[in-house]
Structure formats: structure tokens, C-alpha cells
Amino acid sequence: MHGFATKTRFFLNETGSLSRFTARFFSVGVKPRYEVKELLAQCYIIGYKSLPLIALTAFIMGLVLTMQLRPSLVVYGVESKLPIMIGIAIVREIGPVITALIFAGKIASSIGAELGSMKVTEQIDAMEVSGTNPYKYLVATRVMAATLMLPVLTVLGDAICLFGAYIGVNMHTVTSYRLFIAQVFQDLTFGDFLPAFIKTFFFGFAVGAIGCYKGYYSSKGTRGVGNSANAAVVLASVMIFVIDLLAVQITDLLGLN
């Protein structure tokens, strides 16, 4: 019972600490002077360097999803609806969530490990002493880069995923790419696309913020760095699903579904 109370207190403490850390982004991070150079560098590392991984997983996801969906559709005789179903599934849910999860796995851990090791080696403390705001320089740029890059990655991932789906469709029947794209977009509306696109900003923000938080407050020692990287990935992944749940409810309330 004692353990439960401790754990609860720890959880609440963590939540409050993370909220305060996140709030600092809006109070400190968005104010000038902007670290543009560092932001671009982080965008390059977080966005561009994640593309091959995202592209590979998205392609496989599209291909596999198509091949898995096909038998059930054949049973009901609606095989021709395969592109529409794949299109809606990818654009609405699978594209953003899978991309965000892969992104969390790669970025949250790397940010957590990087900031954790900087914390452990007291570089962050040294920065503070030298007059540079470590939050502004290290955290704000990374969170901003993650927030901006994940939507781009998601859009590209969706496109690659649809290409994978096209190949999956063509494994059994012959469909021209134009027909496939026309069928995919036939029933897609902005109500499908925009909420999914907007939520990726929140996914990116969550991944960046949690990665930075876990690294920024890493405990001492090499074990602490590993732990913070691991915790960053787990928490970021869970947060993605929580945000997804919120997003679907908000879009439902707004009547966009």
C-alpha cells in the first residue's frame, strides 16, 4: 500500500514536472532571440535523417495492409473498394500514427540520450554558467524541429504508403496508378485529411517535449542516460495514443467525421 502511494505521488510529480517543462516552451521558447541555426540543424537531424526509416516502414505498411485487407474484401465481393479503404485507413489513422510511433522510437530516444548525456556530463550546467539559456538552445529548438518535421514526414510517409498499397493492389490485379489514385481520393474529403494532418503537429510536439524532458532531467550515471532514453520512447508512444484519442473525440464533436 505504501508502494502504491509512493508510485502515485511519483506519477503526479512527473506529470506536474512535465507540464511545467512544457509550459516553459511557450513562455521561453517562443520568445526571441531565436536559435535559427540550431533549429535548422535539428530539423535536418530530426526530419531529413528520419526519412529513410519512415519511408521504409510506410512502404511496408501500405503493402502489408493491402494484402491483409484484400481477402476480407474478396469475401464480401467489394474488392474494387480496396483503394478507397486503404486510402481512408492510411490518411486518417495509420499514416499519422505509424509515422509518429516510428518517429518517437527514433527521435525521442536520441533526444533523451543526447540531452541525458549532456546533463550527466554537466554540459547543461556549464551552458547556464556561460550565459546561454540551455532551455532555449537545446530544448526549444528540438521541440520546434520535431513539431514541424513530423507533419512533413507524415505527408511523405502517406504518399509512400499509398505507393506500397498500389503495389499491393497490383500483385493480384492490374490497376493503373491514375485509377488507383483517383479511387483513393474519390471519397476522401478534407474532413478525413485535415484532422489527421493537424494532429501530427501535436504528435511531433509531444515526441520532442517528452524526449527533451526525459533527457533534461536525466539521473546521474550512464544508466540514467539509458533509462531516460528508454522512458522517453515509452512515454512518447503512450502520449501519441492519448493525443490520438483526444483528436478523434474532438473531430467527432466538430462533426468532421
Partner: peptide, 27 residues
């Protein structure tokens, strides 16, 4: 690196615009 980042972001934007156009055309 910045050039590559630019290409990456532009590609993303292009895909986004294409998607907007395709959906918008239907509507």
C-alpha cells in the same frame, strides 16, 4: 545539410499541396 532539409521540406509541402488539390478537386 540545409539544402537537403530544404528539399525534404519542399517535397513534403508538394505532397501536401497535391493531396489538398486532389481532395479539393473532388469537392
Amino acid at each position: 545539410n540545409n539544402t537537403r532539409l530544404g528539399i525534404f521540406v519542399l517535397a513534403g509541402l508538394l505532397a501536401l499541396i497535391m493531396a489538398f488539390y486532389m481532395i479539393g478537386k473532388n469537392n
